[in-house]
Each structure stands twice: as C-alpha cells, then as structure tokens.
C-alpha cells in the first residue's frame, strides 16, 4: 500500500485507543475499503499516487474517524461498569464495617483483587480491569509502609531495594497501561491522593508513621463514603462515550472526594498537605498524557 495510505491507517490506529482485537477489526475493515476504492480509481485511469491521494481525501480526517469509532465502542455495559466499581466498593466495605482489622477479610480481598487483575491483564485488558489493577498495587504500598517500622539503621533496605523495585514496578504497569490508553492510567491511579489523604488523617500528631486505630474507626464511615464516591465515578466513567467527559468526571470527582476527605479529617489535613494532594491528583492526569505522547514520539522516530 502507498505510504500516504499507510500513514492514514497508522493515524487511525494511534487515535483509536481500543483493545487489540477491536483495533484489528477496525483497521482490517478500513483496509478492505481502501483496497476496493483504490482498485476503482486505478481503473478510472489514475496513477498509484493520484489514487492514494484521492482515496485519503474521500475517507476524510483520520483523527475524526478514529474519534467517532472510539465513541461508538467506548461506552461499556452496565455489567462492565459494576465490575469497574467493585474494587472500590470492596475496600469501602472493609473500612465502613471495620473488617480491615480481620486478617481473613483483608487477605481474601487482596487475593480477589490480584486474581481479577491477572485475569483482566491476560484477557485483552478491558476497561473494567484498571481499577482492579490500581488496587493490586496495594501490597507494594503496604510493604513500603512496613519498612517504615524497621529498626533504625535498616533504612538502606528501603533506599537500595524497595524504592527502586517499587518505582520500577509502578513504571512498568503504568507504561503498559498507557500503551492501551493514558486515560486508563488515570482511572487506575486517581484513588491515590484520596487514600494518601486518609492515611495522613489517621496519623498520630508528630509521631509519623504511627497511626491511631481509634481514629481510623471514628473516620471509618467517611472513608467508606469516599470509596463509594470512587465506585460511582468508575461506573460513570465506563458508561460515558465522550473522552472529554470521562476526563472531566474523573478529575472533578477526585477533587470533590479530596475536599470531602479534608473536611472530615478534622483539621488533620492542613492546607499544605491538601494542596500537595491536589498537585498529585493533577499530575495523575498530566503525567500519563505526556508519557503517552513521548512513547508515540519514540515509536515514530524508530520507524
């Protein structure tokens, strides 16, 4: 196929942001269309280049076609919306009903989260996977928190082993997710500032990293409510068609939940901490988008 048409199909592919099998179906269908149109144009007496150029004109903007096809496919079913909201609901229940203290509930939830994340990862990375994937990183965070309680002098373990390994894992998962669609990275990571907010709110004053179990029990209903808000957001995200609406829903809901966290934290979350969490929330949208642009730029440079 002529380079101009290859570029056209590459542009459609880059802007589709669908799962691999849907992407292949769409591009195969367009390829068949292009072949038939080219054949007709050549028969009408046009040269190879003229036929390719006319064909691209007749097809219309590749970005527009890709965006419209994305919108036709991007609305998930109610079942997918429920699946996407499930991990938030599970963690919400763990806190709201104080089950987080029971090792059985906690480990059962983590096993389920890991199983769902692995299943989704090997079955075409559907949209519902990404909230599960975010929570599957919880054991990594918990391991990091445990390291804070190591005796003094053992900090080299954290510096030399844990931090590089944890960052490498987070980077790999995020990059793989961005290759599918940067917005799924934001869907996966947007609970981070809220969880961080609650973590700071239950700390004993001036004795970081010690936390107050009593305070955690007092705040449990509000923590549960914030997870419920995350669940509703994830379900709404899956049901929406337009991309800009998905971004708006994630960001606004993240911001409102953060404000709610600050309100119910009872003064434990000061203005600097609150502003820092907003900054983290913003970076969870900007960093994946910029990383995706960089990955595409590198890919194009390689070709």
């Amino acid at each position: 196929m002529v380079t101009e048409l290859n570029r056209y199909l590459d542009s459609v592919r880059d802007n589709l942001r669908l799962d691999l099998s849907s992407e292949q179906e769409v591009t195969s269908e367009l390829e068949t269309h292009i072949d038939e149109r080219l054949h007709e144009l050549r028969q009408a007496g046009l040269s190879e280049e003229e036929a390719a150029s006319t064909c691209v004109k007749l097809l219309g903007s590749a970005k527009l076609v890709a965006r419209q096809i994305y919108e036709a496919h991007s609305q998930g079913t109610w079942r997918q919306a429920l699946l996407a909201s499930m991990p938030h609901l599970l963690f919400g229940l763990l806190f709201a009903l104080n089950w987080w203290q029971g090792i059985g509930w906690l480990s059962g939830t983590l096993v389920l989260v890991l199983a769902m994340a692995v299943y989704g990862w090997w079955h075409g990375k559907p949209a519902w996977l990404f909230p599960w994937l975010g929570y599957s990183l919880v054991p990594v965070v918990v391991a990091g928190l445990m390291l804070l309680y190591l005796p003094k002098g053992w900090s080299w373990v954290t510096i030399l082993l844990y931090i590089p390994l944890a960052l490498w894992l987070l980077y790999r998962v995020t990059v793989q997710t961005i290759k599918r669609d940067w917005l799924y990275s934001s869907l996966m990571l947007f609970p981070v500032p809220i969880i961080l907010g609650w973590f700071l709110a239950v700390q004993l004053e001036g004795r970081f990293p010690e936390f107050s179990a009593e305070r955690l029990r007092d705040l449990a209903p509000w923590i549960g409510l914030s997870f419920l808000a995350l669940a509703v957001t994830a379900a709404t995200f899956i049901r929406l068609r337009q991309r800009w609406l998905k971004v708006a829903v994630l960001f606004i809901s993240g911001l409102l939940t953060l404000i709610m966290t600050a309100c119910y934290a009872g003064g434990r979350l000061g203005l600097p901490a609150f502003l820092l969490l907003i900054l983290i929330l913003l970076s969870l949208f900007l960093t994946p988008a910029l990383l995706e642009r960089k990955i595409r730029y590198c890919k194009q440079s390689d070709q």
Binding site: L58, V65, A72
Partner: peptide, 15 residues
C-alpha cells in the same frame, strides 16, 4: 459523505 465516517455510524448501530 466522507467515506471514513460511515464506519463509526455502522459500529454505533451495531453496538
């Protein structure tokens, strides 16, 4: 119409 825009319409009706 622009031929490429036929496919989003077909996919939407299929969905």
């Amino acid at each position: 119409f622009k031929e490429g825009t036929l496919y989003p319409a077909l996919h939407r009706l299929e969905k």
